[in-house]
Each structure stands twice: as C-alpha cells, then as structure tokens.
C-alpha cells in the first residue's frame, strides 16, 4: 500500500510546485551567423546531457528510493471515490438483518433506461415482499437516479467496477446485490451523491478559480 500513500504524496508535491513560468526563448535566428552561433551555443552548453540526467535521476528514484509509480492492478487497487457509481448494492437493516427494500417501485419508475424490473407480493405478515428484482446491466447507464430516489437507502451504488463476466445478468439478481448476511457488520452506508471525496481539500485548490 506504500505506493498509494506515495500517490497522495505526489499530489501535495504537485500542489506546492504549481508556479508555471514561461521561458523567454528569444527570437529564433534562421540564417547566417546568428543561426550558426546559436547552434554552437546549444551544442556546447550540453543541454542534451540534462535530459539524460533527468531520466537517470528518475531511474535512481524508482529503483532505490521507492518512488515506483506502478500499481500492480489486479493485486492492488487504488481507492475510489465514494461518489463512484458502479454495480448496485442492496443494503440490509442493521438491527434485524432484513433487507431494506420495501418494494415501493420508485426505482423502477424513475429508471430512465428501463432496466429495473421488480415484482412484489404480500407475505404472510401482510408486508410487502420483493419476489423478483433484476437490473439489466446491458441497459443500465449508471445514472444513479434509482439510488437517489430510494426512500429507504436500500438500493445504492457500490464500488464493484470489475464487471467482466460471460453474462452481465450474473451481477443483476437481487440475491447477488444484497449484502451477504454474514458480512452485515461490514456494510457501509452510502455517502450519497453530494458527498465529497476524501482529498477534496487538495483538489479544490486545483480548480481555475484559485488563480
């Protein structure tokens, strides 16, 4: 995880170094003596070696000072923003462990790509029970309306973005999206669409308004 901290480190370093200066290159002579003098000057000032120096310094940094920038992706993952809208999750009530969905059907109604399909019925306690709930991820555009409209914070967007499989339907059943009952304690509340990313303070200074 060292590289992730280092990732943040470079962010702060970049912030401090943000003072761009336009170099005064002067006029470029094209012919005659001035051009010749410029060629000689540039050759003798060994500017090419500076380029070599920079790459060599970076290599030393990477090899011996632990500044390698690579994230070994399938093995390591960078944290994603809480706002990120990936495959949906269905949350449970923390006290009872029952799923939060009350079968109101608002998400089905608001879905602009018509990809949510649900069937409900009354169970033996005369409560609404979800008998069928699927999201067609072939159609879903991950707009996030369903999560926004949900009155019970039952359907939210999770962080599962590696959705490659033989069939997208594999992700879309209610049971697959529901938090497993044994992982109830690890269930996190969805911060929501207005939530700010963890490094928001750093990022806000990079907007053009800062200048």
């Amino acid at each position: 995880m060292a590289h992730i901290e280092e990732h943040k480190e470079t962010h702060t370093v970049q912030k401090e170094k943000q003072n761009y200066v336009m170099l005064d290159l002067g006029k470029t002579p094209k012919f005659g003596m001035p051009a010749f003098i410029q060629v000689v000057k540039r050759s003798l000032s060994l500017e090419l070696l500076k380029g070599l120096g920079v790459t060599f310094r970076e290599m030393i940094n990477a090899l011996f000072k632990g500044k390698m920038h690579t994230t070994k992706y399938p093995f390591e993952k960078l944290p994603i923003s809480p706002r990120y809208r990936a495959i949906h999750e269905m949350l449970r009530l923390l006290e009872s462990g029952h799923y939060r969905c009350i079968g109101c059907g608002l998400c089905e109604k608001i879905c602009i790509s018509n990809c949510i399909a649900m069937e409900t019925r009354y169970d033996e306690n005369q409560r609404k029970e979800v008998s069928q709930y699927t999201i067609n991820f072939g159609r879903c555009i991950f707009c996030g309306y369903c999560a926004e409209v949900c009155p019970e914070l039952a359907i939210v967007h999770g962080g599962r973005y590696e959705n490659a499989s033989e069939q997208r339907a594999g992700f879309s059943l209610f049971e697959d999206m529901l938090t497993p009952i044994d992982k109830l304690k690890e269930q996190k509340e969805f911060a929501g669409f207005g939530s700010i990313s963890p490094n928001a303070d750093e990022n806000i200074k990079k907007t053009p308004l800062a200048y």
Partner: peptide, 13 residues
C-alpha cells in the same frame, strides 16, 4: 526494463 525504470514503471514482471 530500463525504459520502464526511467519512467518509474516496473516493466515485465
């Protein structure tokens, strides 16, 4: 490998 290190990558691993 050398190009990767100079660009602070890992190269073939």
């Amino acid at each position: 490998k050398v190009l990767a290190f100079m660009q602070r990558r890992l190269g073939p691993m």
